[in-house]
Amino acid sequence: MLELDSESHSNQASETGAQAGTAAVQNDNEPASSREGVRDRNGKMSGGTAKKSRGAKPKPHESKLYDNLVPAYQALWPAVARRRIQHNLNSLNIAAGTKVLEVGVGTGLSLDAYPEHANVTGVDLSESMLAEAEELIEQRGWKHVSVQPMNAEELTFEDASFDLVTSFHTISVVSHPDRMMRELVRVCRPGGKILVINHFRSPNPLIARVVDSAGSLTRHLGWRTDLNVDELLNELPIQVIRCQKSNPLSLFRVLIAERKA
């Protein structure tokens, strides 16, 4: 149902920042009410923060970057990533009726990049961000989009449920990126496409060491800088169509793959 655009991709300006949407694994020892928030009588979400013991290493979804800085995220994220997401989704020529899953949808700031003739489902673990996404969906009157809370490492969808599976700047904030990647592949139908945009560890040893030096800081904020794309894709039933930066100075790579039968 999807075709890749054969036209060459234009270069984009160097961009910095990282996706503040989160789909990280939950702490099973936490009370459900503290990590999931509540829904009102219309089923909409509100609240929901995760508590942790003093001195414990924060999990990605516990970072203040997610629940306390949603306004800043909404202000900065479009400038950081929206153009790249729109460009690469357009290149896929998404056909009418395509079933799309976006993992780590956050506040929904990428949702307007999908054509209205597709059927889009967004999932995320952060209830506070999903509440923002639901409000956006209602404001825009989108009938083709829905969102729901879900753990990216344990998607509850059946195998081969979607024609296109996407994730933008999320896989480096989950606790087990390899599990998340396996789930993205599992729920994609054979012949379907997977689009992931994220920062991956540079193959250049010098650049990798420089970026790795910031790892102790970025881990406290909720994301990692040492994710190796080759290790992530190892032994998965996919064919990589493209995995490259939009331009040499960009921090992020675009991965497009097709699920094998």
Rank of each mutant, 00 (worst) to 15 (best):
Ile256Gly: 02
Thr166Glu: 03
Ala152Asp: 01
Leu232Arg: 02
Ala118Thr: 05
Ala23His: 01
Asn42Trp: 13
Phe200Ala: 02
Thr166Phe: 04
Ala20Ser: 09
Arg179Ala: 11
Ala257Phe: 07
Gly108Val: 14
Lys193Met: 13
His61Leu: 14
His61Gln: 11
Arg140Ser: 14
Ala261Pro: 12
Ala257Leu: 04
Val229Ile: 00
Arg186Thr: 06
Arg224Phe: 04
Ile171Glu: 02
Leu206Cys: 06
Ala95Cys: 05
Glu102Met: 10
Leu251Cys: 13
Ser202Cys: 09
Asp159Val: 09
Gln26Met: 08
Ala23Ser: 09
Asp163Ile: 08
Glu127Thr: 05
Ala50Cys: 08
Ala152Tyr: 01
Pro203Ile: 15
Ser202Phe: 02
Leu249Trp: 02
Met181Arg: 06
Ser14Thr: 14
Val174Asp: 01
Ser161Pro: 08
Val105Ser: 05
Asn228Gly: 06
Glu135Val: 11
Leu130Trp: 01
His9Thr: 15
Glu231Val: 14
Pro71Met: 11
Gly37Asn: 05
Gly122Ile: 05
Asn27Val: 15
Arg186Asn: 04
Ile94Met: 05
Val174Ser: 01
Ser216Val: 11
Glu7Trp: 07
Glu154Phe: 00
Asp28Val: 13
Gly215Pro: 00
Ser213His: 05
Ser246Leu: 10
Asp40Ile: 06
Asn151Ser: 11
Lys59Leu: 15
His220Trp: 04
Leu233Lys: 04
Gly43Ala: 09
Ser172Cys: 13
Ile238Phe: 04
Arg182Asn: 11
Arg84Leu: 14
Ser216Tyr: 07
Pro248Asp: 04
Gln148Leu: 12
Ala113His: 03
Glu135Gln: 09
Thr156His: 12
Arg219Ala: 12
Thr121Asn: 08
Ala50Met: 10
Lys59Ala: 08
Arg84Asp: 08
Leu184His: 00
Ser216Lys: 10
Leu89Gly: 00
Gln139Ala: 12
Arg39Met: 12
Leu184Gln: 01
Asp178Met: 13
Arg83Glu: 14
Val210Pro: 01
Val211Arg: 03
Leu233Pro: 02
Ile171Met: 03
Val70Met: 13
Asp124Gly: 07
Ser202Ile: 03
Ser161Tyr: 08
Leu232Tyr: 00
Glu30Cys: 15
Gly122Trp: 00
Val120Arg: 00
Asn88Glu: 13
Ala50Ser: 12
Ser246Phe: 06
Thr218Ile: 07
Pro205Thr: 06
Asn204Ser: 12
Gly191Asp: 01
Asp5Tyr: 00
Ala96Gly: 08
Thr49Ala: 15
Glu30Asp: 15
Arg209Val: 01
His144Gln: 08
Met181Leu: 13
Asp178Arg: 15
Thr16Leu: 13
Gln86Ala: 11
His117Gln: 14
Asp5Arg: 11
Gly17Trp: 04
Gln239Gly: 02
Glu183Lys: 12
His220Glu: 15
Leu251Thr: 09
Val25Gln: 10
His169Cys: 11
Ser128Asp: 06
Asp212Ala: 06
Arg182Leu: 07
Arg253Gly: 04
Arg253Gln: 08
His199Gln: 13
Phe157Gly: 01
His220Asp: 14
Ala32Glu: 08
Glu153Ile: 05
Trp77Gly: 09
Val120Pro: 00
Ser63Leu: 07
Ile194Val: 11
